[in-house]
């Protein structure tokens, strides 16, 4: 069916009534069940807006080795996850594993091309900083779980990742 099949649908000009609204409510409910809005997307969006004041370029996320059927917000917190972010100037891969302290995460990261670049992990509670080594590796230990975005200082314009849930 295309749009031209809809030119003369009987009832199209009738006023929207209670039955229509109830039908729409069911459409909303079924859509949410079939394709739920990921948990935490509102919070990631708010944090991304908060960080947006900073002049930076945002990387794309590339899906790699994320447990099947999950979105970041849904992933089991105890599993090791690997996420890759791509940008025309830089690729960042991070592996997330449980930290030494309860409720924390260890972040192992690799930059390509390699470079000893300053790294900032931006969190709602504050930033954590480190520097990649000459091979482009960096580690952030015992990072509290929650929302985070990585910022890599490169050239004049820093590059940031989308907000993810650690």
């Amino acid at each position: 069916m295309d749009m031209t099949d809809l030119d003369d649908v009987p009832g199209a000009d009738e006023p929207l009534g209670g039955t229509d609204l109830a039908l729409l409510a069911r459409v909303a409910e079924l859509s949410e069940r079939v394709d739920p809005v990921p948990e935490g997307l509102v919070e990631r969006s708010c944090f991304a807006m908060t960080l947006a004041g900073l002049e930076s370029e945002v990387m794309d996320l590339m899906v790699l080795e994320v447990p099947a059927g999950s979105v970041r917000g849904d992933a089991s917190p105890l599993e090791t996850r690997t996420i890759t972010f791509t940008h025309e100037r830089l690729t960042v891969m991070i592996a997330l594993s449980p930290g030494n302290l309860p409720g924390t995460v260890r972040v192992d990261g690799w930059l390509a091309p390699t470079g000893a670049l300053p790294i900032v992990l931006r969190r709602p509670d504050g930033d954590l900083s480190t520097t990649a080594d000459d091979d482009g590796r960096f580690v952030l230990e015992d990072v509290p779980r929650g929302l985070a975005s990585l910022l890599v200082e490169q050239d004049d314009v820093p590059i940031t990742t989308p907000v993810i849930e650690l």
Binding site: P10, A12, E14, G17
Partner: peptide, 13 residues
Amino acid sequence: GATRGRCLAKLRA
């Protein structure tokens, strides 16, 4: 708008 509109009318049909 204030009317049911073609899409909703078609769904009902």
